[in-house]
Write a protein that binds this DNA or RNA. Structure first.
Lengths: 170, 170
DNA sequence: GAAATATGAATGAACG
DNA sequence: CGTTCATTCATATTTC
């Protein structure tokens, strides 16, 4: 039983303060922050935690996208054809719906070995997709065990360099 | 802008092989592939999966654009830089170095390990660093409920390695 | 602790 | 060509 942990750093997580500022900006105008604005924002938000310009860009983009998609949902679309992918069912038209109530829960764990194995990743193999997908991905690479869902990289050659393979009992 | 003509399920996804070839070509700095080259490439890449000329064009364009990372909302590269007051010295006019460093390959460079408080996974496994957190503590955060001084803002920069390879018998 | 959901990030494609 | 959108993936967090 070799459980493997992912070797990746964590992604940025906005602090409540950062989020608040971002949300406020989003509510105001938020056409699309100019580069200068982004820089400025970055500098300001940096005082509240680690952040990079890309984070802000991403945040705005995501925010806009999801906000839009939210409204677009539920217009009588009875036939929901998404069966494996997006389960967009959120409802955050309001400012905040779920913050981060981890005030008391100080889990300094940092590295959670939470490898959820089936996180909606079940891409059901449909003929349509296969038609547009690689033939080798489903034949050659899966032997390596690294057959990712879609976006593989020009990796291959090397095997495991999982320097942090930790197996915990389950 | 509102018209989505692709219905999304048919987005081309390069196979590892295709990507490898494309990357190589890109690295050779061939400039903008000529029409003939595109055709040729298409033919070649077709042997490794479904592909169209347009895909290749798009790929090169995207690649170049993101490589330059000149966009103000360049979600292309995850250039990490500490936003500790300074705003990126912009010392990179050169070609970028692999947006997504294949985690399987040892890439001990490119990632910052200065005051990285991210996961102590890669370079310096110091659990203590994980603990120290955001400097924000006295602000108008109280209206959000509470302050999370545990593990909020972590470093950014990281890459998903699309492994998910877990051998575990259960 | 695993499943479900929220959300940051990567990227092909479209737009100007 | 530069920028933005839409979609999907991976991971963080919450819930059960």
């Amino acid at each position: 039983s070799i459980c493997q942990k992912m070797t990746a750093r964590q992604r940025w997580t906005p602090t409540p303060m950062q989020l608040q500022i971002l949300e406020r900006l989003f509510d105001q105008d938020t056409g699309t922050p100019s580069k200068q604005k982004i820089k400025d924002l970055t500098e300001e938000l940096s005082q509240h935690g680690q952040i990079a310009e890309q984070n802000i860009c991403n945040w705005f983009q995501n925010r806009r996208a999801r906000s839009k998609r939210k409204q677009h949902c539920g217009v009588g679309s009875s036939n929901n054809k998404n069966g494996e992918g997006e389960v967009e069912t959120e409802t955050e038209t309001l400012n905040e719906k779920r913050k981060r109530p981890e005030s008391l829960l100080v889990q300094t764990d940092g590295n959670n070995n939470n490898n959820d194995i089936g996180t909606a990743t079940a891409t059901s193999p449909r003929p349509e997709d296969l038609c547009f997908q690689s033939p080798e991905m489903s034949s050659d690479l899966h032997l390596l065990g690294v057959q990712s869902n879609t976006r593989d990289e020009h990796l291959v050659e090397s095997y495991n360099l999982y320097d942090h393979v930790e197996d915990y009992d389950m």
